[in-house]
Write a protein that binds this DNA or RNA. Structure first.
Lengths: 300, 300
DNA sequence: CGTAGCGTTGCGAAAATTGCACCGGTTGGG
DNA sequence: CCCAACCGGTGCAATTTTCGCAACGCTACG
């Protein structure tokens, strides 16, 4: 939008850190960009940037303004989405922050399902850990968040909560496959492949281990859930994952079994949005679809 | 703000009902204004006006856009108010929707008190009945509402609730003055001066009358609380009012006594804002002052 | 002490906005 | 039935705003 140009330019300067770099990004001259910033500050009544020898940085007033700019942008997107919905066509862009476990099966399926009905809708999928996801919502960087065991839960409006028991992954040839439910001690005899400390699965495992007076000494510790899933095919080890990240119908070399709730408490996979915000139509409808899909999983 | 010009122009067209009239209001030519509207609609992606032979009217998309425009404007005001507060100076504008009962004593005193501390702050006081006040909040026309017994209470965030017993007003020479608390039947022998049906005082009186199997037949029915207060000095009649609209220390020709709660239930004077909205600094601080003042009245 | 980066400014060129005159259409009254 | 009074829309020239270029002063860093 043309009338938002000034805000885009301010945002470009914030991101680039200097007028000259931002000028390149925006296909403008440094002088022109400089004057737009200056004239805006004059209208606004206060400077919004600190002038440093190395460039520009937002001052406190600028930080407040940036909140306004982000709100303004997303609210316009909401209006445009609602207007598109008025005329029957569903357009828009859906931005979702999610945990890694949703990447392999759940989200691809859900996004494809939604896009089959509404081809005009585009998606951004941002992988975020449970703390970052909430910051994403607060800064309007994402419309929806689908995360496992998030931390703060302020400013977070829970649309649906799906209980998820931690599952252990191992080669189908292991004797563990005989038991329908595993105890934590069954797994601790194996070499362990664990997610790093920032992740909810690890947090729950540590809780369970502490409760039983044990400690977890992983052989491989990683931020990649994909690596965990693939590693247990190569070495005789045990990994952990929540069921939504597992292909239940798969008949490949990997087996998985839930851990007993007596050892490791089940976590919650939370779908949520920023508290008090009214989402664009597309995001809102997609959120409803996700709720339905999660409900179906809860029953099944 | 310069970059908001397009929105101001759209708003002007909405208010004026036609481009040509709006052009006069905005010191522009009809052609220039017309082209700005057209180019905005093109950018926006949809028309926002219906073209009628007699002028322009918002279509549904335009109504949605106007919500955005109003939100955008008030949010910018909030940011500017917060920025002004950063540098110590308190500026801004406070818009308050209130019942008539607040006009004679309470609000003038509170506004003067606030302005003594912060001369940079300006006020709008809009007299609204209990239904309109809530609409004012929802459309961002007012920051705060101070109303007696409002109706809907959705989207209304109650900051403070002050119980208010309905008082009867009469000439000091009447025998009613002897009783510290009046029964409804004491008043019904007199000629009655009542507010019209939209007002909370009337609503409570009707409730009490119905409960006692009586009906209210007013001699004068009016929308003006001021007329009620003054009329009882001219004719030997009884009017009704809530205490916050009465000057407790006055020693003039009028006396007032509370009605017994057995007959007429006490109402609530509610201070509130729109649910989920973060107010500008000035409005927020003034709201806190009002809460303190109302609390003092509740104790006294 | 030079260099590289930064924000800032004067000035002519380029672009966007505006004003003016005018068109086609509808409404309402003589 | 026509004519005056509105209305929104358009072509074109004037005007205002914005932009690019070149240069300046400043600070940090090697």
């Amino acid at each position: 939008m043309r009338y938002l140009r000034t805000f885009e330019l301010i945002d470009a300067v914030v991101r680039a850190g200097s007028i000259r770099k931002a000028a390149e990004d925006t296909n403008l001259t440094a002088s022109a960009l400089n004057r737009r910033i200056q004239s805006f500050e004059q209208e606004f009544g206060w400077p919004i940037f600190e002038r440093l020898p190395r460039g520009m940085r937002l001052n406190p007033a600028g930080e407040l303004l940036m909140q306004h700019i982000r709100l303004q942008r997303t609210d316009l997107a909401r209006v445009q989405s609602q207007v598109a919905d008025l005329s029957g066509e569903r357009r828009g862009h859906i931005s979702i922050a999610c945990s890694q476990a949703l990447l392999p099966y759940f989200l691809p399926e859900q996004i494809a399902l939604y896009r089959a009905a509404h081809p005009g809708v585009t998606f951004s999928v941002n992988v975020r850990d449970r703390a970052q996801a909430e910051r994403d919502l607060a800064s309007y960087s994402s419309d929806l968040a689908l995360v496992f065991e998030p931390v703060h839960l302020v400013e977070f409006d829970v649309l649906y909560a799906l209980p998820q028991t931690v599952h252990a992954l191992f080669q189908r040839t292991e004797p563990l496959v005989e038991k329908p439910v595993l105890r934590l001690r069954d797994c601790l005899n194996y070499k362990l492949v664990l997610p790093s400390a920032a992740y909810g699965v690890r947090h729950l495992l540590e809780l369970g281990a502490t409760r039983r007076g044990r400690t977890l000494s992983p052989m491989v510790e990683t931020e990649s859930f994909e690596l965990i899933r693939h590693y247990v095919t190569r070495e005789n080890a045990v990994g952990f994952q929540i069921p939504i990240g597992l292909n239940v119908g798969a008949t490949d070399a990997i087996a998985h079994r839930p851990l007993s709730g007596k050892d490791v408490p089940p976590g919650r996979l939370l779908l949520g949005q920023m508290k008090g915000r009214s989402l664009p139509v597309a995001s809102s409808k997609f959120g409803q679809q996700l709720v339905a899909a999660l409900e179906a999983r809860a029953e099944g």
